[in-house]
């Protein structure tokens, strides 16, 4: 395995777990910055949104009142970076009264059990 690791061509399965609301703390924004930079490394990337992290993808974010930049349009640009595997927790959506129509991007809805299987399959997990 060590020889393979030294090879620049190695492609790992990398998942980013986003669990925080988009505002209130900087985790969501700085997670997105890692995803954008990481896209240059051509890895097999999955983004997972769970808990309050599902709010990161909510349509119609109005942030002028809290003097923060609305960075939700950036999620729509992820496709251009070949980051296309976006998964959202079904349970987290339901608990918050959200449906797929409320989101700014196309996602795949998965149950928490399915997400657990997905995480099981990853080489690297970044948690934000």
């Amino acid at each position: 395995m060590s020889e393979e690791m030294m090879d620049d061509e190695v492609v790992k399965k990398m998942a980013y777990i986003n669990r925080r609301a988009p505002y209130g703390s900087i985790y969501a924004l700085e997670s997105l910055e890692v995803v954008l930079i990481g896209a240059a490394f051509d890895q097999d990337v999955s983004l997972i949104f769970a808990d309050d992290g599902v709010f990161q993808l909510k349509k119609d974010q109005e942030t002028a009142g809290i003097d923060m930049k609305n960075f939700s349009p950036t999620y729509r640009a992820l496709e251009m970076y070949d980051v296309e595997k976006l998964y959202v927790s079904k349970e987290s959506m339901t608990e918050r009264g959200l449906s797929e129509d409320d989101l700014v991007v196309d996602v795949e809805i998965k149950t928490d059990a399915e997400l657990a299987d997905l995480l099981d399959d990853q080489d690297v997990i970044f948690s934000f």
């Binding site: 690791m5 790992k12 990398m14 930079i37 990481g38 690297v124």
Partner: peptide, 11 residues
Amino acid sequence: GLGQLIEAGIQ
């Protein structure tokens, strides 16, 4: 830069 984190994940 953040690339150092991704590279570390790969290595």
